[in-house]
């Protein structure tokens, strides 16, 4: 088995989700003696070699070019599929991010091979991969297998363990794939990322507010708690539709699907469409004044009461414990 991990970087920063994919490759290589390689694509990314060289990969492949500064999914997927061919790779791992999802799908067609997207579990048993995916709004799980020789998996953020540093050092290999105009027919012109705040898809702690927060101004209470816990802020659709919160915070059916370690739902009733986005969270906490709110059916820890009085106390208690 020969594995390739696509390590996503943006603006020269390695994504944490990339380390999760590397972590899974590392586990496979330890348990089954598989070889794995890491592929980095971009411009001025040489310093990233140092960040990934101690995870036990045989080589770190670097495709570095000015033209690759901004993402072109056509060019990136060409580099990937050409590398897979030349290195006789049979398993490709992606983080299931926006970039990872688009590129992995393009690569699947280029190589005419199967792709299991957004896996929440992946096992290698009896010389076969079994991937678990969450479907029907998280109400069901399916196990799938891939029949083609080359297999692609993208891994849901926050589910797989990040890689651990090893003694050994990977070799570096520059790769050059001829690119032409056609590979840049679609290109990213600019990226704007809100800095300083973790994104809801990647955060390991999320505090979400719903209509029970009563007004947009009260979300300051959520933001304060989020800042204490270095958490991302999320929202129900009701408050996004009411323009209390930006759309990119929406969790659920028509919003983001998240699997943080801790999800705190504040003043959210727990409609099935909201659960669709967060029911796979590891620990769920709910604050709601209605003891019969459906959200309590799926919580690990719930507190019945007025969010507006509970949140400030909650925040100061957490600060005390964390010594902040």
């Amino acid at each position: 088995m020969k594995i390739l991990v696509f390590a996503e970087q943006r603006e020269g920063k390695l994504k944490r989700t990339s380390l999760e994919a590397i972590g899974f490759a590392q586990k496979l290589s330890q348990q089954n003696n598989f070889e794995f390689e890491i592929l980095l694509i971009g411009n001025q990314i040489s310093s990233l070699y140092d960040e990934v060289k101690n995870y036990g990969a045989k080589t770190v492949l670097m495709a570095e070019d000015e033209k690759l500064h901004f993402l072109s999914s056509a060019a990136y997927s060409k580099i990937l599929s050409e590398s897979v061919k030349s290195k006789s790779i049979d398993t490709i791992l992606f983080p299931a991010t926006q970039m990872g999802k688009e590129i992995s799908s393009l690569v699947a067609i280029k190589l005419n091979c199967g792709l299991a997207n957004d896996c929440v579990n992946l096992k290698f048993e009896n010389s076969n991969f079994i991937a678990t995916r969450s479907i029907y709004s998280g109400k069901s799980l399916i196990d799938v297998k891939i029949n083609s020789e080359i297999k692609i998996f993208s891994l849901r953020p926050n589910v797989f363990k990040v890689a651990e540093k090893k003694e050994s050092t990977s070799q570096i290999e520059k790769i050059e794939i001829a690119l032409n105009e056609n590979d840049f027919k679609s290109i990213v012109k600019s990226t704007s990322i809100a800095t300083g705040k973790p994104d809801v898809v990647e955060a390991s702690v999320i505090i979400s507010g719903g209509r029970g927060m009563k007004s947009p101004e009260n979300f300051i209470l959520i933001e304060e708690l989020a800042s204490t816990l270095n958490a991302a802020t999320g929202a129900s659709r009701a408050v996004v539709d009411a323009s209390w919160r930006p759309h990119n915070e929406q969790v659920g059916q028509t919003g983001k699907t998240v699997s943080p370690n801790l999800y705190i739902a504040v003043g959210i009733s727990g409609a099935i469409q909201h659960l669709a986005g967060m029911s796979s969270s590891k620990c769920i906490v709910a604050i709601n004044k209605d003891k019969d709110a459906p959200i309590f059916q799926i919580t690990d820890y719930g507190i019945i009461g007025d969010a507006l009085t509970i949140l400030p106390t909650f925040n100061s208690e957490v600060k005390k414990i964390l010594g902040k």
Binding site: Q98, S186, I187, V188, T191, I193, A194, K197, D199, E202
Partner: peptide, 10 residues
């Protein structure tokens, strides 16, 4: 995209 937006031209 995660944490933000991106302008893409095609």
């Amino acid at each position: 995209i995660e944490g933000g937006k991106e302008v893409v031209e095609t």
